Simulated scan of single mutants.
Amino acid sequence: MTEQQIAGSEPAAGSMKEVRIPVFPDKSWRITDFGAKGDGITDNTKAFQDAIEACSAGGGGTVVIPAGIWLTGPIRLRSKIRLHAEQGALVTFSRSFDDYPLIRSNYEGLDAVRAMPPIYGENLTDIAVTGGGVFDGSGDAWRCVKKHTMTERQWNELISQGGVVDGGGLWWPTQEASEGRRATEALQAEGLMDIALYEPYKVYLRPVLVGFTRCNGVLLDGPTFQNSGSWCLHPRLCEHVTIRRVTVRNPWHSVNGDGLDLDSCRYANILDCSFDVGDDAICLKSGKNEQGRRTGVPTEYVTIRNCIVYHGHGGFTVGSEMSGGVRHIEVCDCMFIGTDNGLRFKSTRGRGGSSRTSVFPTSG
Rank of each mutant, 00 (worst) to 15 (best):
R245P: 09
E10C: 09
A51D: 01
T184F: 00
K285I: 15
G287F: 03
A112D: 15
R249P: 07
G324C: 04
F212L: 11
T339K: 05
S94K: 02
I65D: 11
A186Y: 01
R266D: 05
T295E: 02
K346T: 10
I69R: 12
S274H: 11
G211M: 05
M335H: 07
A7E: 06
N250Q: 13
C265G: 03
L205W: 04
T362W: 14
D99C: 04
L90C: 15
G35T: 06
Q291P: 02
A36S: 06
L284W: 02
T348C: 01
G296Y: 08
C283G: 10
V129E: 06
R349S: 15
T224C: 09
Y120W: 01
F212Y: 11
S363G: 10
G132D: 10
G315Q: 08
L71I: 05
D333I: 04
S178F: 05
G88L: 13
L77I: 01
D333W: 00
G132H: 11
E185A: 08
V210Q: 03
L262D: 02
V218R: 04
V241P: 01
G60E: 10
Q49G: 09
P74T: 04
G278H: 04
I75T: 12
G168S: 13
E330G: 04
Q49T: 11
S320I: 14
G180D: 08
M150W: 10
I337V: 12
N269C: 12
G169A: 07
E290W: 05
L205R: 13
D126E: 02
N123P: 09
C232S: 06
L110K: 05
D111Y: 09
T62G: 03
I337M: 07
D280S: 07
T2I: 05
A186T: 00
P173S: 01
R104Q: 14
G278P: 08
F275T: 00
G364I: 03
K202V: 04
E290S: 14
M322W: 06
F336N: 14
A36R: 02
W252P: 12
P251H: 10
G287N: 00
I75M: 12
L124K: 04
